[in-house]
Design a protein around this nucleic acid. Sequence first.
RNA 1: UCCCGAGUAGCGCAGCGGUAGCGCAGGUGACUGUUAAUCACUUGGUCGUAGGUUCGAAUCCUACCUCGGGAGCCA
Length: 461
Amino acid sequence: MNIKQILKENSIGKNVVIKGWVRTRRDSKAGLSFIEVNDGSCLGNLQVIAENSLSNYDTEIIKATIGSSIIVEGIIVESPATGQKCELKANSINVLGYASNESYPLQKKKTSLEFLRSIAHLRPRTNTFGAMVRVRNELSKATHDFFQNNGFIYLNTPIITASDCEGAGQMFNVTTFDLNNVPKLENGEIDFEQDFFGKHTSLTVSGQLEAETYALALSKVYTFGPTFRAENSNTTRHLAEFWMIEPEVAFNDINDNMDLAQAYIKYIINTVLTNCSEDLQFFNDRYDKGIIDTLKHIVNSDFKRITYTQAIDILLDSKKTFEFPVAFGLDLQSEHERFLTEEHFKEPVIVYNYPKEIKAFYMRLNDDNKTVAAMDVLLPKVGELIGGSQREERYDVLVARMKEANLPQEEYWWYLDLRRYGSVPHSGFGLGLERMVQFVTGLGNIRDVIPYPRFPGSCEF
RNA sequence: UCCCGAGUAGCGCAGCGGUAGCGCAGGUGACUGUUAAUCACUUGGUCGUAGGUUCGAAUCCUACCUCGGGAGCCA
């Protein structure tokens, strides 16, 4: 039985075996020790009563300090003291691995998130990271549940890609070349024909283009996988390696797309509220006092939807002085997005129909010829959670936009084929899992919502 | 990459020109069905690195490194 089950069910009288790690202990001269054990199944610890009549009490149990791993067999009894309903009266305790008090870094004291980043292999043993990773797991599971229950097919798009002119960001090169001796052509350029794939390849920055091809056959697909950006970004909301969820739906227009994004976000938040209440309460107490209320509010309300043009008007009418200028045609800056979602609406906002000049070539041109059917879902504190659009399904318009963007049509021949054979309107978006975890937990730095963060200058562990 | 800020004992911090201190953790002891226990005592630091100013630098200056916050890029 794991500790979650023991604490949840009425287990009094049951004989159980638990396996876990000592979180804290208190020794009593009355002849017993209180050992709180955690096995990661839930936030709470189970208090184990170890009496000195146990044969290995003096030789082993007393040395099982914080961080030690133990197996306890015993009976669950009602606790005579306040603080816990039940406790485990041990019949036997087996110590598997000790953890020296003098060197084990997670003692009974405050530790900063910054310090924990330097011991990323041990931080899962803290309340914060146990709770974070359980919430992250629940968001992932709820993601699959949501799409599976709505008829979506889970699609694995390639990690290694040859389409390197997507414009979504700097890419990591993939090669088997000996970097000290890279084959060159006579003109000095690298001879990629000699490389593993016979061409220049990179790690994916998005599975969108490939997902589109399957959406135009299976109607509704979604991807959920790692994504890589080689941008030199040093912020609390960027990683070089992160996990992205990208649904793509045939016959959906931009409004359907916004409906889908809202339904999906509300579903996974509601699931976490239901299934991770203890962990969320912890984050509410320790990191963000209002987070549970905020999440409940989101589940029970519709997101505000405004066009880019309306957003500009709101910003201009606000009379607020911004560092960056506000005008039609200029992209919204962080401070503008923050104002909209944190100050003006105080809830999630979807901004759509952006000027075509500031958005990607594949976004569908609106009838005004000035804007494209793009949408961003903005969240308080984390900023852009989702970026998506209705895709340009008209061959001629798409080709024209590629020319404007100076993109080589040859390399997109298969993408253009979609528009030549049975093209239909379709839409999709990308959601950054880590930003969702950030929002739900209230953890301010994205490096604390993924087990092993990768960012410029850091690939430890 | 740019703009701020910070780097002092294992961790969190104070000291801001006269040669280093507090809390927590650790250790020892006392006490206790305890609950991040309590109480007493105690170990522990060439003050990020390299230069410079000064009679004297943790304290001032310069460079570099690392970390944090903000910005850009975006998920």
